[in-house]
């Protein structure tokens, strides 16, 4: 325990004291604050989505979500850029993978369609039950991850991922502009009929945006995973050759 550690512990102790005051004096509200109460009261007539969280993410706070997927896109681009510049010198990086075991290879073949199906279910039911574009996109990306683990040589082409990513991003903007043209504002999802409250095809454009976000987020996560996965350099050299 050097003086440095004691100093850090002391400083964090002060921060902990501040936290302690926050936590000790904390009393949960008896009722929802006005914003949340508004969202709860107008879920049926404004978004048509029974899942309030999805309604907030996609409709009421749609612009934040657009910014978020943009940040995620930038992240995946920067990760790919940073890693592409540090390519291993030729010969230094041998084919370092162990071949996947029989269990993993067979399990992947069995599980991959189920994972894709579950991802599609989570995305499509995002406005009815817990789920939505981000969760479903993460599920799809974990399917890509499983395929990467089972067959390190097999990878989805960067061109395909980039195309899926940019087409769904463009679609997201176009749906937002359609809200501007046919409903009350940018990213307003009510330009499509709200439908019966609680049905699968309801809630205006929310399922559409969920699908687009799911594809975009899934492609971005898959890009990040493939960039960081260790076989990347070797595979790029093969592509170049």
């Amino acid at each position: 325990m050097s003086t440095r550690h004691i100093l850090i512990a002391g400083l964090l102790g002060l921060l902990g004291l501040a936290f302690w005051h926050l936590a000790a004096d904390y009393l949960p509200d008896a009722a929802l604050n006005p914003t949340a109460a508004y969202y709860a009261a107008h879920a049926a007539d404004q978004t048509g989505a029974p899942n309030l969280v999805t309604g907030i993410i996609i409709t009421w706070r749609g612009l934040d979500t657009l910014g978020e997927v943009t940040v995620l896109f930038l992240t995946s681009a920067i990760v790919a850029l940073v890693l592409a510049q540090s390519k291993a010198p030729a010969g230094a990086a041998g084919p370092g993978f162990l071949p996947a075991g029989e269990l993993l290879a067979t399990g992947t073949r069995m599980l991959l369609p189920l994972i894709a199906l579950f991802g599609a279910y989570v995305i499509a039911n995002g406005h009815l039950s817990p789920g939505g574009g981000f969760q479903g996109g993460a599920v799809l990306a974990s399917g890509v991850l499983l395929a990467l683990l089972a067959q390190p040589r097999m990878r989805i082409g960067h061109a395909l991922l980039a195309r899926v990513e940019s087409v769904s991003g463009l679609g997201y903007i176009l749906v937002g502009l359609a809200g501007l043209a046919f409903a009350s504002g940018f990213l307003d999802t009510a330009f499509l009929p709200l439908g019966r409250f609680g049905a699968l095809l309801s809630a205006g454009a929310i399922p559409l945006i969920s699908v687009l976000i799911g594809l975009k987020v899934g492609a971005e996560f898959a890009t990040i995973l493939q960039s960081l996965e260790e076989g990347e350099d070797a595979a790029q050299e093969e592509d170049a050759a």
């Binding site: 789920g131 993460a138 974990s142 995973l225």
Partner: peptide
């Protein structure tokens, strides 16, 4: 919703 995201992203990916 948060639980699903945390389980898939935070602890998985």
């Amino acid at each position: 919703d948060v639980a699903m995201t945390e389980a898939a992203i935070g602890s998985g990916l």
